[in-house]
């Protein structure tokens, strides 16, 4: 554990909490892509299956359980409890275009052709693109609430901090995992346009609005 990984994890946790609290307090999931949240639930489920087979640490188990439970809670709020506020007309990204290529790629490029390993690899590939339905929704409506922007910033920062963690581990521990690194770079790059708008607009108190 190093400072980059810890802040990355905390940033990830913060993002998930921001989203849950936002939906709960406003009793609305307007502006939130249910499809991205479904993909994240799929990502955590397929990645953390090792919960039942391998014990790593109390921290690890605790965080995995939080991520799984929070993602299902978010999906429940969007598709069940606050279904009436769900923006399904704008949430039209075709998720099969993300799920199927991620799955095929995980069959082709993995560390070991074993069920748990392929599901782990699939989750890494799918996570790298799982935010696309959300970014697509923001681009379709042309704007995002500030709280949604904070959520996206925290979620995007998490993988960026993991990249620093991997650079650190490469030098400090001679450890690296190309699958995670390449997917992490892709994931972080997808947020770059948003990061730019966040810094230039949201941090200056303006609403995130895309140029017409």
């Amino acid at each position: 554990m190093n400072i980059f990984r810890l802040t990355g994890d905390l940033s990830h946790l913060l993002a998930i909490i921001i989203l849950l609290v936002k939906i709960w307090k406003t009793r609305s999931c307007a502006g939130i892509s249910g499809k991205s949240q479904l993909l994240f639930a799929l990502v955590y489920t397929t990645r953390y299956l090792d919960l039942v087979s391998t014990y790593i640490s109390a921290y690890n188990t605790f965080m995995k359980l939080i991520f799984i439970c929070a993602s299902y809670a978010t999906v429940y709020l969007i598709y069940m409890k606050f279904k009436a506020t769900y923006d399904h007309n704008h949430d039209t990204f075709r998720v099969e275009f993300l799920i199927l290529p991620s799955f095929v790629l995980s069959l082709l490029i993995n560390h070991d052709f074993a069920v748990l390993e392929i599901l782990w690899t699939f989750s890494i590939y799918l996570e790298s693109v799982a935010i696309l339905p959300q970014l697509f929704l923001v681009s379709k409506t042309g704007e995002a609430e500030s709280i949604t922007s904070h959520y996206l910033f925290a979620l995007g920062s998490y993988r960026g901090l993991y990249l620093l963690n991997w650079i650190y581990r490469y030098y400090a521990e001679s450890h690296y995992d190309l699958i995670a690194i390449v997917a992490g770079v892709v994931q972080t790059v997808l947020y770059c346009d948003f990061f730019y708008l966040y810094v230039t607009k949201v941090l200056k108190g303006k609403k995130l609005q895309l140029p017409a």
Binding site: R5, D9, S57, M63, K64, H111, D112, Y162, D177, A180
Partner: peptide, 10 residues
Amino acid sequence: TSHSQTKDEL
């Protein structure tokens, strides 16, 4: 192996 170390990450 290298990838099992990455598994302790989230």
